[in-house]
Design a protein around this nucleic acid. Structure first.
Lengths: 137, 137
DNA sequence: AACTAATTTAAATTATATTTCAATTTTATT
DNA sequence: AATAAAATTGAAATATAATTTAAATTAGTT
């Protein structure tokens, strides 16, 4: 969480148009996992000249630049989150769709180890847990 | 690996048309992770009257019946595998696209535990490791 | 064999994402 | 500040994956 997204874009040499600034700021201040449609809605509320094509282009650009992480929870829509955060994985409540973030160092280390055993250097991973809330008695 | 896919379909009360039998058999005897297009190619080679719409419908039906597992490795195409196998996760070679299957009980147990700590009963998970081969000296 | 309901094909449609291209905006240069 | 070159934009067209429609066929039942 060192620099803002706009700052990181400049470091990467990306032109900061107003559209990109708007989208960057939305993601900066968001704690959920919006899809493109939702980003477009939020961006339009700030600057209604932004087109959805630009939102698609921008998230793709940001993803390729390592500024955003793309998430896919299996419903066909890609979701995005700020990549400049402590790494974490996701637990998805299959009843409500709610997404809970978590970190577990033990599981992170195990993944490295498993990859090594298979002769690979781990470059990334995707871990999603799907569950239902435990009912309290 | 107790029954064949066809047998499991019958248990579930699904009608076994010739198209479904062909698709079931392909998946039964496959050790890779074909997408719909690839299943369609293989099915057409056996019975060239099968349409791609049927392949789409069949994999969806099979998935909903718990006969197939749907995999998404982030390239936009869904892949399928026989669900009636020892549970395993996947390591994807990001250079070659090769998919390696693995099982690690420690990581399985950890996932249960993490879900419990968050107040959830684990119903499923998706773990994919992405890596590059370690070069031998 | 006839009947009913499910399934099939082929085409049309939907949903998500990407690309095209003229117009505009940005950045670097003067 | 004005200018030129290059990148970005919006709107529409296009691409791609998946689903649905409707008429025809097939499976399972009587």
């Amino acid at each position: 969480m060192s620099e803002t997204i706009s700052e990181r874009c400049e470091i990467k040499g990306l032109r900061m148009t107003n559209q990109r600034k708007v989208i960057a700021e939305i993601i900066e201040n968001t704690f959920d996992h919006p899809d493109v449609e939702e980003l477009y809605n939020r961006a339009s509320a700030i600057d209604d000249s932004i087109s959805i094509a630009t939102v698609y282009r921008t998230v793709k650009l940001f993803e390729e630049s390592g500024i955003l992480d793309k998430l896919e929870f299996g419903d066909g829509r890609a979701r995005y989150e700020n990549a400049d955060r402590e790494h974490h994985d996701h637990l998805i409540d299959i009843n409500s769709g709610k997404v809970i973030e978590f970190v577990d160092n033990e599981i992170e280390e195990l993944q490295e180890l498993i990859a090594l055993r298979l002769g690979y250097e781990l470059r990334g991973h995707k871990l999603e847990l799907y569950g239902v809330p435990i009912k309290k008695a």
